[in-house]
Design a protein around this nucleic acid. Structure first.
Lengths: 257, 257
DNA sequence: AGAAGGACCAGTGGTCCGTA
DNA sequence: AGAAGGACCAGTGGTCCGTA
């Protein structure tokens, strides 16, 4: 069937890329600024803790090596033989286009969401058979099941990262397709395309009373995914903006306070 | 309003009862036996761990007291002034009957479920206002909110313990009321009444295709409560029993294997 | 620089079991 | 003996950040 064809298409050859350094993540736009400051502070604190822990850990590693032979330098094999390989990174592709080289396309990305749905359906069937609690969403349990079933290329951070892109694909395939074509043409990277998916979704929410949860739940393939935090926040912020500006235009006719 | 009247009714005077010893809990009836053995073993292991931890903890307590003055004997005040008092225990009451003495009646019990619903509605309103994730069930968050709002007599273990009793009250008030009258008349305790609530619920499930989750979700006041594990298990076990015996009666007409 | 995902963390559902 | 509930625990949703 077509499912496995797509799988095979994107699975040959896995990547090993060079390393550079790390950079601070840019803060997303479009929210209340005091809130963002608080978030940034919190993040800074955690980073400190993490770094301290990290340093301690590497000390321990060194200590554990003190006795025993000298390790070969530049040895990155880490002990065992089969290091788990990463998936190829995504690139922006047009609908129907297959990614060339060590890349995966967006049809493949969306296909992963369909696969998760199938795994959920299997988990649900098993739960019902056993009379156990039956998940309605793609939970940790489903990701675990997918891994056991051999779909090691499916993981939670990745799926959560692109949920809103899949949402746009479900809710307005025309708009989604046009966005892909535009971003491909301009040679934008996946991150830029991903960011751009938010805006049309907020526009859809605006037309439907801002209830993004209701919008997700009304769609049979989308209802099994948790609404991403950032999308929810954007809808909320934009609703407030819209309300504020409409109340200004109303308010000036009557009284501002 | 009537809400506060009921509250006041059950709040005067709090209990201080004598202490005896502890006993092993009887295992519930009506499930697969190999499974129950496994559960019992698991429980035994945990008990050992817990007891060991307990012993260590009381050693530490003693050590911490070593320096400092001798404590007065039989001092159970524990340091501060306002020890938190427990609620009066429930007794089986008829519908409309108010419990006498240091007891609470079952109308009061069911009233607590209505109060939780009101707290949930408030939590939902706040979440929507803030554009945050909106709970559909009575979650930890709701219990925390209830406590902060001063309803310290509401707590999770208690509410979860009697959910199925409330379910029967919601789903078939006639049957629920008759059960209460019968158990009161025979002078049964709350535990016995609570156990007896399972059977009519399973009968209701049997009539509706065994889907206890669907039954809970279809009822507006019940849908906000998680289906209790034991009720789910009983429905599952009974469904299998029913299927087995019907397949026997069918099987004998054709072939047993 | 951009991206994939191991691994962490705060707070959850669930309920045991020391306590009154 | 029967019951109320503090407190624990395994596994969750969420996502950071060291890694390729």
């Amino acid at each position: 069937d077509t499912t496995n064809a797509l799988d095979a298409l994107s699975q040959e050859g896995l990547s090993e890329e060079p390393v550079v350094q790390r950079e601070k993540e840019a803060v997303g736009s479009g929210g209340g600024s005091t809130w963002e400051v608080a978030v940034a502070e919190e993040r800074r604190k955690r980073q400190q803790i993490r770094r301290r822990r990290m340093r301690m850990k590497s000390n321990v590693d060194r200590d554990e090596n003190e006795e025993g032979e000298e390790e070969e330098e530049d040895n990155n094999s880490g002990g065992g033989g089969g290091e788990r390989q990463r998936e190829h990174p995504f690139i922006v592709t047009e609908p129907g286009e297959v990614a060339r080289g060590k890349k995966n396309g967006l049809d493949y990305l969306f296909h992963l969401y369909e696969q998760c749905r199938e795994f959920l359906i299997q988990v649900q069937a098993i739960a019902k058979e056993r009379g156990e609690k039956c998940p309605t969403k793609v939970t940790n349990q489903v990701f675990r099941y997918a891994k056991k079933a051999g779909a090691s290329y499916i993981n939670k951070p990745k799926m959560r990262h692109y949920v809103h892109c899949y949402a746009l694909h479900c809710l307005d395939e025309e708009v989604s397709n046009e966005l892909r074509r535009g971003f491909k043409e301009r040679g934008e990277n996946v991150g830029a395309w991903r960011q751009a998916c938010y805006k049309p979704l907020v526009a859809i929410a605006a037309r439907q009373g801002w209830d993004i949860d209701a919008i997700f739940n009304a769609h049979p393939r989308l209802s099994i995914w948790y609404v991403p935090t950032k999308l929810r926040q954007l809808c909320h912020a934009e609703r407030n903006n819209a309300a504020a500006s409409s109340s200004v235009s109303v308010g000036t006719a009557h009284l501002p306070f």
